[in-house]
Design a protein around this nucleic acid. Sequence first.
DNA 1: TAAGATTGAGGCATCAATCTTA
DNA 2: TAAGATTGATGCCTCAATCTTA
Lengths: 185, 185
Amino acid sequence: VGKEPVDQEEHPRTPPVRTPQGLPEVPVQWLDDEQQRAWQALMIMHARLNAALAAQLAADSDLSLADYVVLVDLTNRAEGAARVHDLARRLGWERSRVSHHIARMATRGLVRKERCASDKRGSFVVVTDAGRRAIEAAAPGHVRAVRKYVVDVLTDEQLAAVADASGRVVEAIDRSDQADGGGEF
Amino acid sequence: VGKEPVDQEEHPRTPPVRTPQGLPEVPVQWLDDEQQRAWQALMIMHARLNAALAAQLAADSDLSLADYVVLVDLTNRAEGAARVHDLARRLGWERSRVSHHIARMATRGLVRKERCASDKRGSFVVVTDAGRRAIEAAAPGHVRAVRKYVVDVLTDEQLAAVADASGRVVEAIDRSDQADGGGEF
DNA sequence: TAAGATTGAGGCATCAATCTTA
DNA sequence: TAAGATTGATGCCTCAATCTTA
């Protein structure tokens, strides 16, 4: 469960300067020290927070982080049900990931699959009573962890700054994806 | 490679209020709208950025993100070598994860394992010439992606704010881990 | 006994291929 | 042909058990 402190060096201080074989010599703009520091801090936070939240859920419930977000999404729907496709879109997952994950959750009785009547290609994922009980039992501990690790250790201004920065990063990725996914570099 | 935009709802607007069976009734402080918004934004950024960086490396090199950080760490060492234990600590990985990952990288010729002479329990991981070529070929594209998605879309102030906030979060997790890993909630 | 490291089992994520219905 | 969804293969990550040396 516990992870040791990290003093990782994610990127070279003196980055390698050779360019890939045969490609036209595109000059690379490396990161300066401040940028390097910020980037490392973000990546480390990323890894540690994920591990900490996953560990809390594993210790205090029978749900993984992935189970948790699926159940939250389903229980937020009026019907407690969602199409696989919509679930994938809202969660930002691949459809096949949803399919595999739902199959596993179904064997544990947390959800159940139903054929869609209007569009016979589709299926519904429905949260079961056991699924509802599981998420209701897990939610308080999870929220406490989110507070303990993030919300309660940052000022309102810091939290807002993180939200804004996150939004910008996601926009940049969206732009890149839209530029056909072949926009590349 | 491309992911669609996400309008995910990570947490309940009206969170479930039941507490786990049998436990003493600890009141739960749920998140307000601003906190909810910030938390969602962070989680979404988290997922999308990881996917985008992994996709770039997958498209432009034969390295995964995990391969990349291992090779960066090794090539930053004077000897191009590191003990498994130190690698695990610096990367924040479990030792068994390092062991498995190194084994896979070794079969691809990126690294090689060597017994440690002074402490016969230990082993060294050594980067090979092929490993050096691979990281040097992959680095420019990776750095361009980091700039494109993060460094170049944030102001210096935003980047600094993210770094500070990340540091605080990691400190909070460290504190929690130190409080024996059984400190819990 | 404990520390460094490896192994095997099992859950998880991605990719490509496939199946069914529109 | 294309969209919704599933499947199988493969690689990745965690946990618990194990092996070797200190």
